[in-house]
Amino acid sequence: MTGFGQIDGVVSDGDLISHFGDAFREQRRLADGAALAPLGDRTVIEVAGPERLSWLDSITSQAVGRLAPGESTELLVLDPQGRVEHAAGVLDDGASTWLIADSGDAEALAGWLTRMKFRTQATVDVRSDLALVGYIDGGAVASTASAAAYAPHGVPLVWADPWQRISAGGHQYAQVAEHPAADFAWRVALLTTESADALAASLDHDALAGLLAAEALRVAAWRPRWTTEVDERSLPHESDWIRSAVHLSKGCYRGQETVAKVHNLGHPPRRLAALHLDGSDAVLPEPGAPVFVGDDEVGHLTSVARHHEDGPIALAILSRRAPIGDLVVRADGIDIAASQQVIVPADAGATADVPRLTRLSRRPSAPDPRDSGAEV
């Protein structure tokens, strides 16, 4: 545990700090860029070696082969059927590539990468000695966090979440005039244990926020995570993850045929929606709570939060055929009314003005053993 867990008033479970005494106030300050949040639920993986970027480019959904030092992006690892297996933020410093993964996925992702190395000149190491803090850029804490960031090769390790805008090669399915992520300038600084302790000791209590605050801002921005929005059926299209983590015009990678097919033909099996929940009940439903239209179960909650302005909010994965309109969330025998805002339309891809991928019928003359049975 870093020094953040020793601060008076902290409510935590090990390295997972829920709040520092006032979750709503912390959330407002975090949104204003005046506070930072220790992210004990994320883990860093370091990938080093001269072939690291070309190798990661060949086995993941994102084009990272020419990633410049200090540049950030995001990648997914898909199975041969195009389903999401792993997800990570990506930052390169010219000598190493740093992956930021949800802690529940980090060991499995590192293990998969290690198995895929074969003769590639790259090493994969889980860096449990590093801590992470998140904040909104442009505020009072940004320079403090950046100055404390680990810089083993001269580049401060601060990841800029690409979710704020559509990445090069990506596409947005959400049909909104202004995406709620437009103000979500989320940054994550990587710290040594020593610098994390020094940072914790130097900050005023008002400059700290817990995971409850960070999650509320994420849910309000419709931002998917591996921990919450991914299950054994998840396609990147369903949560609009092509926006930031999939490059539609890069070369072959495992699962690319499904990505192209669903993108070109449209109609992903499920779709992510944002819900505003009836706030009359003091208890929030838990993730996994079923969502109904009448007597028909049409999906389940994936993320739930209390927002300082919007009140109880949630993300839910719904059947493509779920009606657009009000829903009911059933939790502990209680029905909670929910108004729905569509994130991914039922016909996502089919009616969008998008480039049509031409690689669907291309196959390499000889299989690449690194694809491990991949469809390309």
Score class of each variant (00 low, 15 high):
Met1Val: 05
Thr2Trp: 08
Thr2Glu: 14
Phe4Lys: 11
Gln6Cys: 08
Ser12Met: 02
Asp13Lys: 03
Asp13Trp: 00
Asp15Ala: 15
His19Ala: 08
Gly21Trp: 03
Glu26Asp: 12
Glu26Phe: 06
Arg28Gln: 10
Leu30Pro: 10
Ala31Cys: 03
Gly33Tyr: 06
Pro38Lys: 01
Leu39Ala: 14
Val44Ile: 14
Ile45Thr: 03
Pro50Tyr: 01
Ser54Cys: 04
Ser54Asp: 15
Trp55Ala: 07
Leu56Thr: 04
Asp57Pro: 10
Ser58Gly: 12
Ala68Val: 13
Pro69Ser: 08
Leu75Ala: 12
Val90Gln: 08
Asp93Leu: 06
Ala101Glu: 09
Gly104Tyr: 10
Asp105Val: 03
Ala106Phe: 09
Ala108Met: 07
Thr114Ser: 15
Arg115Trp: 04
Met116Ala: 14
Arg119His: 08
Gln121Met: 13
Val124Cys: 14
Ser128His: 04
Leu132His: 09
Tyr135Ile: 02
Thr144Phe: 01
Ser146Thr: 13
Ala151Ile: 00
Gly154Asn: 08
Val155Ala: 09
Pro156Phe: 02
Trp163Ala: 12
Ala168Lys: 11
Gly169His: 06
Gly169Phe: 04
Ala177Thr: 12
Phe184Leu: 01
Ala189Ser: 14
Thr192Tyr: 05
Ala196Ser: 15
Ala196Trp: 09
His205Arg: 09
Ala207Val: 00
Glu215Pro: 01
Val219Leu: 02
Ala221Tyr: 06
Val230Thr: 06
Ser234Lys: 02
Asp240Trp: 01
Ser244Glu: 09
Arg254Asn: 14
Ala260Gln: 13
Lys261Ala: 12
Gly266Gln: 07
Pro269Tyr: 00
Leu272Ile: 02
Leu272Ser: 11
Ala274Phe: 15
Asp278Ser: 13
Asp281Pro: 01
Ala282Leu: 05
Val291Arg: 04
Gly299Cys: 11
Arg306Glu: 12
His308Val: 02
Asp310Leu: 15
Gly311His: 07
Leu318Cys: 09
Leu318Lys: 00
Leu318Pro: 04
Ile324Ala: 11
Leu327Arg: 09
Gln341Ser: 13
Pro345Ile: 02
Ala350Thr: 08
Asp353Ser: 11
Ser361Ala: 09
Arg362Glu: 15
Asp371Ser: 11
Asp371Gly: 12
Ser372Cys: 07
Glu375Leu: 09
Glu375Ile: 01
